[in-house]
Every structure is written in structure tokens, then in C-alpha cells.
Design a protein around this nucleic acid. Structure first.
Lengths: 247, 247
DNA sequence: CGTCGCCTTGAATCATGTCAACTACAGTGG
DNA sequence: CCACTGTAGTTGACATGATTCAAGGCGACG
């Protein structure tokens, strides 16, 4: 198997076990060729539509969600810079969820044929995508456990901790502060609560000196306590196949 | 790429887009070599432990779940005959969930090294596993949406419909009846409800002539209505890479 | 024939949802 | 500059779905 810049970028990504770094993002993006913009509210992927490619988020936030009847909505997770938007693209005919930008978004789109060709040439890329899929399943399980079995207070603490640690991994959180461009309604749709109750819980956390908020800026005053409330789990670690990168 | 019985079994599975048939199970099991038994309550996979192999369920039921503090528990999904237990094995160092038999269980275990070797030889196997992973993620998303945004009534209807259609796919449900060896406590842990409330909802469904129950046997009296209540989504369909099986 | 797991039911309680009203602020057009 | 509009956040009063507590039933099994 020959080495190419892309392969090494992917492998570095595996090594770091975090989201893609900006550098790696650029490398993969170079491969993809096309770079696109989306405005707040634009759909990147639409529930039920055939998927045409895979998106690598360069900058900005998106949500992955599903619309139910009655206008109900469940947010599966938040898509951050460096995230691969839908690795399932290679595997499934059409997605069962939508992805929408919630801030202005920069992303590069890798078309399906291009991606398939790449995967044929470098099977390790498929492993990377699979790992991405597994990591998402991992987050889904944590999320499910939270929504199914934890109190509103715990769920929201967990969401805040998760966002903070993911942002820290991509160096978008300084110290114990981060900019979080999501509305309380989105927190509600992610945690399975009502908007109003989310507000009450956030205010309670402020009253209890766990967090501070100024507009979209969140600051953790007592991280340890917050983590304890959230019963914060560890993130998925890569296994042998991805770790031993021998020839 | 050479053809082997295993490869063709796997491909048939892809074609059928359902769980593995008994025949295919036997084929893969032959490959695996070891066949094992587990009693009700035995752990197949333990949360946090390094994974040593992948299990293909031959017969019996299991649950995939996570234990939280306070004795709370979230059941992620039910593992049925023909299911591959943890494809994530190739990808992740250790699982973030447990799998426990809830009936006497027959399964074949494919050890990790064996599996890795097989995947090297036949990359399409990796795609199959990946697809399995994607299908599970799909079920997780439906499950999350149900727990986060649907009423107890809807959630339980959805669970019943899901089990019924999965059992139908492997020919373990006749007509509108099936044997469902799960306790109401498990339904509660899967749907994020209390045991008592699960009971009330089930009784209500009986009163409303939606279902009938005799011990572990469930019968749907009004499937259409039940599906409507459940807002039953379609299951994941495989995409191009798996569908076009050209050379 | 006692014990244990599972199911069932009623009454009281609680967490969370709903409704309604109000504030704050940003954008927009006159 | 103002009036207007819309979106997001905040708060109280009240409603309700779901939980908890408590008690009992029923069948399986040693």
C-alpha cells in the first residue's frame, strides 16, 4: 500500500483519537476539492433523501436531528468543526435524519463516487469511517442512557460537559469557557425536555454557582462538581486494528 | 478476489437485508469453529472489559445495556438470533456496554485475531460488519427519538412493533403472534419508564383491544393501529457499496 | 407449602409540561 | 430617530404524565 498525504492525515487522525484537527481537515478537504458555505438553517442532509456525499465540517455548528409528527423534534447530536457528517453514506441508501447548520457553516463535500474510489484504493479509509460511525454510536448510547434514565439536571450537565470536552479537543474552548451557539430550545430537543424546563435548570445551575452565562458564552465555575452530576463517561478509544498501524 | 462459501453467505445476507438466516449463521459459525452456550443472566460482553471476539447469536435472546449509578439501567436494544453481537470489536478497544443473555443462549464466538485475519483476506466482510454497525446506529436513533420525544404509550407500541418485525424477519413470529421472553422491568429499562407504568400501559392496550397477552406470548389484534401509534419508521436499507456486488 | 420472581392495582407525590405573560435585544424600514 | 417585528429568554400558576409507595395475587419451583 502506497503512502499519500491523505493517508497520513487520516492516520494522524487515528493517532490523536480526537476529532480531526484543522490541519487534517484541510488535507482531506484538499482531496475533496469542493468547499462550500451554508447559512444558519440550511440543510446539509435531508431526512429520507438519497445521500450524495459526505461532509467534513470545517467551521461552524450543525445539528443532526429527526423530525417527528406534531412538530416534535429529537436532536441526536451536535456536529462540530472537524466532524465527518455522515460516514453512513457508504453503507446506507438514505439517511434517517437531517443535518442542519445552526451557524454559518464552512464544509467540504466529498462526493460519493470519489469517496468510493478512494475507499477501494485505501481500505484504511474505510476503517476510519467505520471508526467514526462507531464513535457516533457510542455517543448515541450515552445520550440514550441520559435521556432514558437521568433527571433533567443530570442530562443538561452531561450535555454541557460533552460539548465542552469536544470543543476542548479541537481547541475551541479556552480554560473553562466556550461559546455555545445553541438555543435553549435546542438543548430541550436534545435532552428530551421542554424549553421552559431547560431554562429553569440552567438558572438553577447559575444560582448554585456551577456555571455562568453571558449570551452564548458559557463558563464552568465548578467543573468537578458538574462532571460528577453528569456522571461523565469516557469517550470511545480505538482498538487494535486502528492502533497497530504496521504495513 | 476469490469466492468462498463464507463470502457468498455474507453476500446473501446483504441481499436479503435482513438479519442472518439460520443457514448463513451456520456457515459463519463453521468459520468461527467454537459454539457456546450461556444461561439466563450470563454476561457475553462486560462493560469496560477488553473485548476478545465477536458473537453471532444462534438462538435465544440477549440485551445490550448500560448500568448507571443508583442501580439505574438503560437497555440499548435487544439482541435476537442472527444478530452479530458487537461488530465494534474491530474498531474499539473496549465496549461501553454489557450484553447479557435473558434466555438460554446458543452463540458462536469468533475470536478477534481470527476475525482480523478474515477481514484482511476479505475486505467485504468489514463492510458487512460496518453495515451491521450502521444498522445498530439507526436503531439507536429511533430509540433515542422515542425515549426523548414520545409518550409512554407510543414508546411501548414502538418497541412491540420493532420486536415483532425483527422476529418476523427471522421467521420467529407467526402471523401476528410472537413469544417475547422479556419482563416488564426490561421494557421499562428500554423505554425509560418505571416498571409500574409499563404495566399500566400494557393493560390499557389490552383494554383497548390492541394486543392480547398470555404469559410471554403477545398477539397483535390491531397491527395497523399499533403501527400508527408507534409512528413506525422503516428500517435501514443498504446502499450502493453493498448493493452492487460486481467484481 | 414457603419463597421468590413477576405481575397488578390504588393512592399519594413529584418532576416536568403547558399556558400565559412579560423582558430584552437585534434587525428593519420609515 | 422611532415604531415595528421577531426571536430568545424568563417567570409564575397550574395541569398532568409518570414515579413511588404499599399491598396483594399468581404461578413456578425446591
Amino acid at each position: 500500500m502506497t503512502r499519500s498525504p491523505v493517508s497520513s492525515a487520516a492516520e494522524r487522525r487515528l493517532l490523536s483519537v480526537t476529532r480531526l484537527t484543522a490541519e487534517e481537515g484541510v488535507a482531506l478537504q484538499a482531496l475533496a476539492g469542493k468547499c462550500q458555505q451554508a447559512d444558519t438553517g440550511n440543510l446539509i442532509i435531508e431526512q429520507g433523501q438519497p445521500v450524495t456525499g459526505m461532509a467534513l465540517i470545517e467551521d461552524g455548528w450543525a445539528i443532526r436531528y429527526r423530525d417527528l409528527e406534531n412538530g416534535r423534534r429529537q436532536i441526536m447530536d451536535f456536529v462540530l468543526p472537524g466532524d465527518l457528517c455522515d460516514p453512513c453514506v457508504l453503507i446506507a441508501e438514505r439517511c434517517d435524519f437531517s443535518v442542519a447548520a445552526i451557524t454559518p457553516l464552512t464544509y467540504s463535500l466529498i462526493s460519493l463516487p470519489r469517496l468510493m474510489e478512494l475507499v477501494q484504493r485505501m481500505p484504511r479509509i474505510a476503517l476510519l469511517l467505520w471508526w467514526e460511525e462507531a464513535a457516533e454510536a457510542d455517543r448515541l448510547r450515552s445520550h440514550l442512557a441520559a435521556v432514558g434514565r437521568m433527571s433533567a439536571y443530570e442530562r443538561i450537565a452531561q450535555l454541557l460537559i460533552e460539548l465542552w470536552s469536544r470543543l476542548t479537543a479541537i481547541h475551541r474552548a479556552t480554560d473553562h469557557s466556550f461559546i455555545c451557539p445553541i438555543t435553549q430550545e435546542m438543548i430541550a430537543d436534545a435532552t428530551g425536555l421542554s424549553t421552559i424546563h431547560v431554562n429553569r435548570v440552567l438558572r438553577r445551575m447559575e444560582r448554585e454557582h456551577l456555571i455562568r452565562r453571558e449570551g452564548k458564552a458559557y463558563t464552568f465555575i465548578d467543573v468537578a462538581h458538574l462532571q460528577q452530576i453528569a456522571h461523565a463517561p469516557m469517550a470511545l478509544q480505538p482498538g487494535r486494528l486502528l492502533r497497530n498501524r504496521g504495513r
